[in-house]
Amino acid sequence: NDEAKKEAEKLWKNNKSEDEIKERLERAGISPDEAEQWLQELR
């Protein structure tokens, strides 16, 4: 999970869309709710 979150953070810094980041997190096995929460922390 931490690995996926690091990846999400990297994508965020590269200005990827939130949808793309969420999709990537969900593919890594993170629930949509958790993915949404993680994005809010990044904002």
Rank of each mutant, 00 (worst) to 15 (best):
E23F: 00
K10S: 06
P32I: 06
N15A: 08
A28Q: 08
D19L: 10
K22R: 12
K10P: 14
I30V: 12
E26R: 13
R24H: 15
E18F: 11
S17Q: 02
E23G: 07
E18M: 12
L25S: 00
D33Y: 08
D2C: 15
L42K: 04
D33P: 03
N1D: 09
W12M: 13
A8H: 00
G29T: 02
K13N: 11
R27N: 08
A28W: 15
K5I: 05
N15H: 11
W12A: 14
E3Q: 10
E3S: 08
D2Y: 11
R43M: 12
G29Q: 03
E9P: 00
A8T: 02
N1C: 15
E36F: 05
K10F: 12
N1F: 13
I21H: 01
K16Y: 15
G29W: 00
P32D: 08
E3K: 10
E36I: 04
E23R: 11
N14H: 04
D33I: 10
N15K: 10
K22Q: 03
L39H: 00
W12T: 14
A35F: 07
R43E: 06
K6R: 13
R24T: 13
E20S: 03
A4K: 06
L39P: 00
I30K: 02
E20P: 02
D19S: 11
R24Q: 12
E26G: 10
D2R: 11
S31N: 08
K22C: 06
D33T: 11
L25M: 09
N15D: 10
L39F: 06
R27C: 14
E20W: 03
E7S: 05
I30M: 12
S17G: 06
P32V: 07
K16Q: 08
L39S: 01
N1A: 14
Q40T: 09
W38F: 12
W38D: 00
L42P: 01
N1W: 15
W38I: 14
P32C: 04
A4F: 08
L39M: 07
E26H: 13
D33R: 10
E34C: 13
E26A: 13
N14F: 01
K13S: 09
E41H: 11
E36T: 04
L42V: 03
P32R: 12
Q40W: 03
K6H: 04
E9Y: 09
R27F: 07
E41K: 09
K6M: 09
K10G: 05
K13G: 13
K5G: 00
R43Y: 05
G29E: 04
I21G: 00
A4Y: 09
K13F: 11
L39G: 00
S17A: 05
D19F: 10
K16T: 14
L42W: 09
I21F: 04
E26D: 05
K10R: 13
S17L: 04
K5C: 15
D33K: 11
E9K: 08
A35V: 14
E7N: 05
N14S: 13
S17R: 01
K10Y: 10
D33H: 11
G29L: 02
A8I: 08
Q40R: 08
W38C: 00
N15L: 06
Q40M: 07
G29M: 03
E36W: 06
E34H: 04
E41L: 08
K22V: 05
N15Q: 06
D2L: 13
E23Q: 10
L25G: 01
E36S: 04
Q37R: 12
E41W: 10
I21R: 04
E26T: 13
R24S: 12
P32G: 06
L25V: 03
L11G: 11
G29N: 05
S31E: 05
E18S: 06
E18K: 04
L25R: 01
K5H: 05
L11Y: 06
Q37V: 05
L42D: 00
L42S: 02
L25P: 00
K13R: 12
E9N: 03
E34R: 10
K5Y: 14
L25H: 00
N14I: 04
P32L: 09
Q37T: 05
K13D: 14
K10N: 13
G29P: 01
E18Q: 05
Q37G: 06
A8Y: 03
K6V: 07
E7A: 10
E36Q: 04
E26I: 14
E18R: 04
A8L: 07
E7D: 06
R24F: 15
K10I: 12
S31R: 08
S17Y: 03
K13Y: 13
E18G: 03
K16E: 12
I30E: 00
R27A: 12
R43C: 07
E26C: 15
R24K: 12
N15F: 04
Q40G: 05
